[in-house]
Amino acid sequence: MFGPIIAKPGTSRKNKTGSWRTGAKPKFLQKDCIACRLCLILCPEGCIEGTQKNSFHCDYDYCKGCGICALICPKRDIEMISEEK
């Protein structure tokens, strides 16, 4: 392979990296959220969205379960729960 190889923009979205989670996933309680946006800013997968208070949630197709969002939430409004639930 010595020639240029070209891939289409944003096609990584085909990879459903959510299957990588090893037991825990975040649960967005949507009770005490103050819409500080910290979880959205800090998710390495860029898979959290929301605008208003108590509207934030993630796309489990991509969430790798790192736990950053749950640890950073100042209102403890995101909880890591076991995958089965």
Binding site: P9, G10, T11, S12, R13, K14, N15, K16, T17, W20, R21, L42, C43, P44, E45, G46, C47, E49, D59, D61, Y62, K64, G65, C66, G67, I68
Partner: peptide, 25 residues
């Protein structure tokens, strides 16, 4: 997948380790 997640210029589905600081940056 919703529109706002689709709009990010660095798309989800990359294969960095969970919690990778470089992918976030």
């Amino acid at each position: 997948m919703s529109d706002s997640i689709k709009k990010t210029l660095f798309a989800s589905g990359h294969t960095a380790c969970a919690g990778c600081g470089q992918s976030l940056a």
